[in-house]
């Protein structure tokens, strides 16, 4: 469904992505792991044109674009199909929870408001926030804000949702509620591409894990292949560092 080829991106003299290929099928839950600075977030942002890649190509269903000089029309078309969940939530501060969720439907897609509200309420009940329609983001906890962020993405019924470290800005005790919501929507068959440091999520929910380092994909495979029998030295080193000594996976 989504195929990207040879993505390059530099900031100044700092080459962040050095030719990344990736392909995702419908229903996939793909987790990208890797040390910080390995380019995971940048890759996600390039896919949604929040950063302009220096080079690269994407095929998305019937749309075929160059990531470096895509036409405005194509960018808009792709963004309509891809939803994004941000690390720091980025809820619209001037809008209520429900308004946040329906904004993309009503304005971006011209869905009638009444219908949009129906969809929005359904999405909010999925993330367990049916009580908070009229609250403003500043009245919510971080975990609640991120759940609204997820509902905002889900409401668009996108072909794929990109998650950019959705739990890294949260206090540890709030991480669980967000991961549970993500797990639920994954179980419904939503296609997801997730950058995270939550190994448990990668292990339990992903059907494919990609390990990135230094701007390239080092290794990819099933969670079992990556966590239990990694082939590459760099993957082993990384896992050894992030997983507790006596931590073993039972899959």
């Amino acid at each position: 469904m989504l195929n990207i080829k040879n993505v390059h991106k530099s900031f100044g003299n700092n080459e962040i992505l050095k030719g990344v290929d990736l392909s995702i099928d419908k229903g996939d839950v793909v987790v990208i792991l890797g040390p910080s600075g390995s380019g995971k977030t940048t890759l996600l942002r390039c896919l949604n044109f929040l950063e302009k890649a220096d080079q690269g190509h994407a095929t998305f269903g019937e749309i075929d674009v160059d990531l470096h000089d895509a036409k405005k029309k194509d960018i808009h078309a792709i963004r309509q199909k891809i939803a994004f969940v941000f690390q720091n939530y980025n809820l619209f501060n001037n809008k209520t929870v429900l308004e946040n969720v329906i904004e993309g439907l009503v304005i971006g897609r011209k869905v009638p408001k009444k219908e949009a509200i129906e969809i929005g309420k359904k999405a909010l009940s999925k993330v367990g926030l049916s009580e908070k329609y009229n609250a403003y983001p500043s009245e919510l906890s971080g975990g609640q804000q991120q759940r609204v962020g997820i509902a905002r993405a889900v409401a668009l019924n996108p072909n794929i949702i990109l998650f950019d470290e959705p739990t890294s800005a949260l206090d540890p005790e709030l991480v669980g509620e967000v991961l549970t919501v993500m797990k639920n929507i994954a179980n419904e068959g939503t296609t997801m591409l997730v950058v995270t440091h939550e190994m448990s999520f990668a292990k339990d929910v992903a059907n494919r894990v990609i390990f990135m380092d230094g701007g390239v994909v080092i290794e990819e495979g099933s969670p079992h292949e990556i966590f239990v029998k990694p082939k590459e030295e760099r993957t082993k080193k990384f896992l050894k560092r992030v997983l507790p000594e006596d931590y073993t996976f039972y899959i």
């Binding site: 044109f49 619209f92 304005i107 897609r109 905002r152 993405a153």
Partner: peptide
């Protein structure tokens, strides 16, 4: 205004002008 507000808006399919 945080840059993320703009990014979130275009990520849900609003045009830059919207």
């Amino acid at each position: 205004i945080d840059k993320g507000q703009y990014e979130a808006a275009v990520s849900i399919g609003l045009t830059p002008f919207q």
